[in-house]
Amino acid sequence: MKFGIMVNEGPYTHQASDSAYNFVAAALEKGHEIYRIFFYHDGVNNGTRLTTPPQDDRNIVNRWSALAEKHEIDLVICVAAAQRRGIADADESKRNGKDADNIAPGFRISGLGQLLEASIQADRMVVFGD
């Protein structure tokens, strides 16, 4: 079955990204397809490579990146939500006249249309948030 996932909260503060990750990992293990994971609201903070948790804690961002690489999952960060919260790739950074970017490997920044498209294409949409 084809799943679309929406993650609405940032890592570490709220459990939503852990729940989403565990759900996605289990779904992949069972042979399901993850059509896209869309990060919205503070969920965009899942995609900054500057995250540096203590060594004995899970690295939520790296975990997403690794999952994306292994299973070719489309990790999409909402551009409007990302601009508000200071998440940028090289293009976004340049366009907005910033001096740095911080997007983590495996993530891409795109529009809200990606959420709608996932809702239309997926067999199931599962929302994780606050």
Partner: peptide, 8 residues
């Protein structure tokens, strides 16, 4: 989301 989604 609703405003952008309308295009679909």
């Amino acid at each position: 989301v609703v405003l952008i989604g309308a295009a679909f």
